[in-house]
């Protein structure tokens, strides 16, 4: 009896409350063609980039996809063919015959598997200039870790019709290989996007024109990435209201954790459609913007001289407890070629 009671208690309490399940069947799992496009003018460089992917329920099977033809079309019907850079990446730059003009409308067209996909017409929006870029370092306290915040100032004028902004945050840092007791090896320059999970949009439609305002572009906890020279680049873009909603929705989906307090999910909307068959599964977004970039150098001393990752003391199993201390090229976005703006 006693043994039976123990078994019963074990059975009851060994069952987990949460377990993974599969809701999808082959009929409900879907594959979409994803078409993302950006037409941008940065300084004197004007280019259009289109990325094409095939989605899958199993993310490992999603992949960049080769398509048959990609074109940019202006509102006078002129076409510019994009060249394939690699699988799923297509680019073209401005030509004397096909100019990229602010406030003019453009759309992209993609031919794939006998179908024609087109985006909505999108205006090439002018962007306000970044007037200044600064850093604010907050040392460690008993409650908060050390932190650096990057701020930019800008202002809208009469040419800015939408007053909605988006920005990319690009962080580049230097790391030098070294193992315990050895001499320094090669130096790598690692470029990462820091805006992929955070909120990087601002609806500034209530802001007065011709008055400077400040944006907190990003904020990051100080770690070993800041132990050598590093840079933050902020690339500011103008977007319209629908594009703003698209990025907010995508941001919501990307950063979901599955807790009770989260906002309910929804379908990712798109401004791409299949012209000849409205039932085709296609998603993605095309927008056009002028860009303005500001960059700031972050010296290790300005952020509290953090401890370097390398060298690290070896452990018994491996002489290289942190792989990047033996080969810094293993890091995503790493190169030994020094960026043109580096000191």
């Amino acid at each position: 009896m006693q043994r039976a009671t123990i078994y019963l208690i074990i059975i009851i309490f060994s069952v987990r409350c949460v377990d993974p399940i599969n809701l999808l069947s082959p009929e409900t799992a879907k594959s979409y063609l994803i078409i993302d496009g950006l037409l941008s003018i940065t300084g004197t460089t004007a280019k259009v980039t289109v990325n094409t992917y095939r989605s899958s329920f199993n993310t490992e099977r999603s992949s960049p996809t080769l398509v048959d033809q990609v074109e940019l079309i202006d509102n006078q019907g002129k076409k510019l063919a994009l060249q394939r850079i690699t699988v799923g990446v297509y680019e073209a730059t401005e030509t004397p015959e096909f100019r990229f003009e602010l406030n003019k409308n453009y759309k992209i067209s993609v031919r794939f598997g006998g179908d024609l996909f087109e985006s909505e017409w999108m205006p090439l929006l002018p962007v306000p200039k970044i007037n200044s870029i600064n850093q604010i370092y907050t040392p460690e306290t008993t409650d908060t870790p050390p932190n650096v915040e990057i701020l930019i100032t800008t202002e809208f004028n009469d040419s800015h019709t939408t007053q909605i902004l988006r920005w990319n945050v690009i962080r580049a840092y230097q790391i030098t290989e070294q193992i315990e007791g050895g001499s320094p090896g090669k130096t790598c320059y690692v470029t990462v996007r820091d805006d992929l999970l955070g909120n990087t949009t601002l609806d500034g439609r209530v802001l007065p024109k011709n008055e400077k305002f400040r944006i907190s572009a990003t904020s990051r906890r100080i770690n070993a990435d800041f132990a050598e020279d590093s840079y933050y680049s902020i690339v500011l873009e103008s977007i319209d209201l629908n594009t703003f909603k698209y990025f907010k929705a995508r941001q919501n989906l990307v950063s979901r954790e599955g807790n009770l307090f989260e906002t309910p999910p929804g379908q990712l909307f798109s401004n791409i459609r299949c012209v000849n068959d409205s039932t085709k599964n296609v998603l993605g977004y095309f927008y056009a913007t002028q860009q303005d970039t500001a960059r700031i150098y972050i010296s290790p001393e300005s952020v509290g001289t953090p401890v370097k990752l390398c060298p690290r003391p070896p452990v018994e199993t491996t002489p290289c407890p942190a792989e990047q201390c033996c080969n810094c090229l293993v890091l995503r976005g790493s190169t030994t070629r020094k960026p043109h703006y580096w000191r």
């Binding site: 999808l24 879907k30 979409y32 992917y53 095939r54 899958s56 960049p64």
Partner: peptide, 8 residues
């Protein structure tokens, strides 16, 4: 019902 990883 589906997912993908973009170039970033």
């Amino acid at each position: 019902v589906s997912s993908y990883v973009n170039l970033d």
